[in-house]
Computed example of a mutant assay.
Amino acid sequence: MRLYRPEDRDLLVKILCYPKPCSDEVLADRLRQLQELDVDAVVSYGCQEVQGFNVLGKGCDSVVVKALVNDLAVALKIRRVDSHVKTLISEGESQALANTFGVGAKVYGFTRDFIVMELVEGLLIGDFVVKAEASELRDALRDLLEQCWRLDTAGLDHGELSRAYRHVLFSNGKPVILDFGSSSRRRRPSNVSSMFSFLFLTGSPLSRVVCEKLGVEAEREALIEALRTYKRLKTRSSFMDLLRAVKLIG
């Protein structure tokens, strides 16, 4: 692990301006934004690597690194300089909205090029599903679908939960929904239906393990019908029936 502070200008440019060199003006602006967010240092830490710098995650539009804010370890999302996304402000606002409903890593602040949020470490959903005992899995997935229900009621569609492999992390058994970069308050929310389909109906290796551990592998038609009813009604009662169909509640 290595700390990089604002005075380490030549070293910071590799990560703050990933994936290509930027002008002194752009770098100065990004350093100013970090100062505005009270970021004291970024930390080379994580299982992925970017130009010799260890990171927590890397995507088409951003890189996520560990950072320090007043000695508090946080996650720092950095907008790539080649990203088609012009600002992270909308994502920061959506994640902050999700926070008010008890969903997502806590947002501490955001600017055009950065989001500072709670550092969450744990298992991705695929690893958690394989390792968890049935009772632990049942509790965690009930919590996860409850969070999806709260997003639906908030009118916020995450946009990526039908492909949730990299978007849900389990920290001490508790699910945390990540990455609100594709979220929208304009689309009709489909968080519950997307996550339910991902977990129980896709026939993927992950879905098969979930269904086997919960004992619902032979009930596909009943699950499809329960989901259809939920999509039509979008009521709390139909949501509870959905949980009951997959034995997450009695």
Rank of each mutant, 00 (worst) to 15 (best):
V43D: 01
L199T: 01
P189E: 11
R30I: 01
V43K: 05
R138H: 07
H167T: 03
V103S: 06
S94K: 13
R142Q: 08
T153S: 11
R5Y: 13
R163T: 03
A105M: 03
I89S: 15
E36V: 06
F200E: 11
L242S: 10
Q33E: 15
E225R: 12
R30T: 02
G109T: 06
L37M: 15
L31N: 09
Q48I: 00
V246C: 14
V74N: 12
F198G: 06
L201P: 05
R208Y: 02
L37W: 13
L72S: 12
L12R: 14
G59T: 11
S94Q: 09
G104K: 01
D143V: 04
L34Y: 08
D40L: 02
A105D: 07
Y230I: 03
F53A: 04
R2Q: 15
L156T: 04
Q33C: 05
L27D: 12
H167K: 13
D241I: 00
R232M: 08
F196C: 07
M117F: 09
G52K: 10
R32H: 11
L151K: 02
E160L: 05
F170Y: 08
V116T: 14
L97Q: 08
G109R: 11
P19I: 02
L144K: 05
I115W: 12
R236I: 02
D113G: 00
R166S: 10
R244V: 02
D61M: 10
N172L: 08
R5T: 13
K213D: 13
S90P: 01
G52P: 03
E49T: 04
A105V: 02
L156C: 10
D24P: 01
C22N: 07
L72K: 06
A222V: 09
T229S: 15
K77G: 07
C17D: 14
E217Q: 14
S183I: 00
L233I: 03
G59L: 08
V50T: 10
L31I: 04
D113C: 02
R185A: 08
R208D: 09
L68G: 08
G215F: 02
Q33P: 02
P19V: 01
R188C: 01
E136D: 14
P21K: 11
P205E: 08
S83C: 07
R228D: 15
T100F: 12
L12N: 14
L137R: 06
F128E: 09
T153C: 11
R30V: 00
P205F: 04
Q51S: 14
A245D: 02
A134Y: 04
K231H: 01
S197P: 01
T100R: 15
E91Y: 08
L97Y: 01
G92D: 09
L223C: 12
D71K: 05
E136L: 12
S171A: 12
R187W: 09
C17F: 12
P19R: 10
L161E: 08
Y165P: 00
L141D: 10
